[in-house]
């Protein structure tokens, strides 16, 4: 080959850097795959809520998914240790979906148990991971991940509203409706750009409507359990299940 003045060392160094990057990616992917696998286990247990009566959630859902979630939390710790050695946002897209799924599972479980939102701080504590870190380059949960997970939680609760009715729990749709409306009001405060979060949050209004329709159907037939007071959260939702006719706002009662 004719003389050229191009330093081969430049390309050797580039190749070394690229190969190193490939090794980091493989190492991260390995642990993320384990997280994904365990995440499927957790999600499949949680999906039992759609055919489990409210009173049996403990033995049928909460207890079985506990161990799977603990395994995931352990895997997050492993991931966090590896990932914190590298620039967070360089690799974040590799695991963001899995973290969203896990946050979703925690939010859903928390709501089922307490009928309230698990805050980002609570999620962070439960996972043992810092949140929204801006001053250090370490593994953490991002606000976007938390909010995207929340849109999943809303979708899942929207699906639960009619299924709960089928299983005889007529108070669930009311609880879900209030929760989704509260979350919807929150999302409306955000100035979202044309991104994934925007698209996902646009769907919340349909969730609001869908659950409203379930509540309306119940109300029309006088099937809603009697309202005690607005902040009297029926933590023992079993009590509301299959509420008797005497317990109805019955001026629109049509058919039981």
């Amino acid at each position: 080959m004719a003389a050229s003045n191009i330093d081969p060392a430049i390309f050797e160094q580039l190749q070394a850097k690229i190969d190193e990057e490939g090794r980091i990616k493989d190492e991260l992917k390995d642990i993320i795959q384990q997280l994904e696998k365990q995440g499927r286990v957790t999600q499949s247990i949680l999906s039992r809520i759609h055919n489990t009566p409210t009173g049996q959630l403990g033995p049928a859902v909460f207890q079985p998914c506990e161990r799977s979630i603990l395994t995931q939390i352990h895997l997050v710790k492993v991931l966090s240790d590896i990932a914190s050695k590298h620039p967070f946002y360089k690799w974040n897209n590799l695991w963001t979906r899995e973290m969203q799924n896990l946050i979703f599972c925690l939010q859903l479980r928390h709501w089922l148990a307490h009928q309230e939102l698990e805050t980002i701080e609570q999620v962070g504590n439960e996972l043992g991971v810092p949140i929204n870190v801006k001053d250090r380059d370490i593994f953490h949960l991002t606000i976007e991940e938390y909010l995207l997970a929340l849109t999943n939680t809303i979708d899942e609760l929207t699906r639960l509203a009619p299924n709960a009715v089928t299983l005889g729990d007529f108070s669930r749709p009311l609880q879900i409706s209030k929760f989704i409306k509260d979350i919807h009001a929150g999302f409306q405060l955000l100035n979202l750009k044309n991104d994934t979060l925007r698209r996902r949050s646009d769907g919340i209004k349909y969730a609001v409507k869908k659950v409203e329709d379930v509540v309306y159907d119940l109300s029309l037939r006088g099937l809603l359990p009697k309202q005690r007071s607005s902040d009297d959260t029926p933590a023992e939702a079993k009590g509301g299940a299959g509420a008797p006719a005497s317990d109805m706002d019955s001026d629109v009662f049509l058919e039981g």
């Binding site: 939102l117 805050t119 979350i183 929150g186 409507k209 809603l224 309202q227």
Partner: peptide, 29 residues
């Protein structure tokens, strides 16, 4: 659709109903 149930369980208007999550979302914003 939200207006139909006149005996709706919760107040519908923005004025008489406050989401408890407003402060949280203001931080997010």
């Amino acid at each position: 659709g939200m207006k139909r149930s006149r005996d709706g369980p919760k107040p519908q208007g923005r004025a008489d109903w406050d989401s408890p999550y407003i402060p949280m979302f203001e931080n997010f914003r």
